[in-house]
């Protein structure tokens, strides 16, 4: 059986809020290492990969591999019934028809119990190769969100160009063009504004802004975001969570003929 207790319901609320416009029905794969999810959007252009390690939960117990097939719309409806500060416990049998959620208020003596009916989801799993990326950019998640939102008003796609000490986001649209450059920046006083660019070779790739704007819905999960790029491979956008957990998005590039 599965029993996983989260100190704060907000983590799961934010994860589901962040991915539910990209993927609809997902298997939450539970085993003794934690709860994982991998799902592609309908067009097979973007992929969500979530890992909530067992250390994220306290306690965490999962004796067998259990796949919880959940409709994310339904999940969101139930998670909205939890206060952000509530303690959240997920429970399921070994061959479950439902997943149970218990929300406990730490301040009040209130316990809320919900069940969500599970579905059989036949999901394609992709093997994602370990990649040594040519460029890794760490920047404030809010800054990345602003850039994607601003450029999406001008164009459908953005070119991300990483070179030594600088990364440039460039778009060309019908009404005009835009470009935002960021340089390495580190401040002891405001480390949350740091930009770090690690580069082994220059990279320039073009991506659909529609998907990037969608990924940025995860900005509330982490103050910083990591962009990993190599020429002619999908972009990795990673939001790191506590206890080595993460929410990752992969986006296939647009490539010329």
């Amino acid at each position: 059986m599965l029993e996983a207790r989260l100190e704060q319901a907000s983590i799961l609320k934010k994860v589901v809020d962040a991915i539910k416009d990209l993927v609809q029905d997902c298997n939450f794969d539970c085993n003794d290492s934690g709860i994982a999810l991998q799902a592609m959007d309908n067009s097979h252009v973007a992929l969500v990969s979530m890992m909530l390690k067992s250390d994220t939960f306290s306690p965490f117990r999962c004796d067998r591999n259990i796949a919880l097939g959940i409709n994310l719309n339904s999940f969101q409806k139930v998670l909205r019934c939890a206060q952000n500060e509530d303690i959240l416990t997920l429970k399921a049998d070994d061959s479950p028809d439902v997943v149970s959620l218990v929300f406990e208020s730490s301040e009040q003596d209130r316990i809320s119990e919900y069940d969500i009916k599970l579905m059989d989801i036949d999901q394609e799993h992709l093997g994602i190769p370990d990649t040594e990326y040519a460029a890794t950019i760490t920047m404030p998640s809010g800054e990345f969100q602003r850039i994607c939102r601003d450029l999406s008003a001008l164009s459908e796609s953005v070119a991300i160009e990483a070179e030594k000490n600088a990364v440039k986001f460039v778009c060309n649209g019908d009404i005009g063009n835009g470009a935002i450059s960021l340089r390495n920046h580190s401040s002891v006083e405001k480390p949350e504004q740091n930009v770090n660019i690690e580069l082994s070779e220059p990279v320039a790739l073009t991506f659909s802004l529609k998907y990037l704007v969608n990924f940025c819905k995860a900005s509330g999960l982490s103050g910083s975001v990591k962009l990993c790029l190599s020429n002619e491979v999908p972009l990795l956008v990673e939001y790191e969570l506590a206890s080595n957990s993460y929410l990752r998005f992969y986006l296939a590039p647009k490539i010329g003929d």
Binding site: M40, S43, H44, V45, A46, L47, E124, H125, L126, G127, I128, P129, S157, T206, S208, V233, P234, Y250, A252, P253, K254, I255, G256, D257
Partner: peptide
């Protein structure tokens, strides 16, 4: 013009 690729062009099915 650039074409949108799908992930299948880069990742293999498990």
């Amino acid at each position: 013009a650039k074409n949108q690729k799908t992930l299948a062009a880069f990742f293999t099915k498990k």
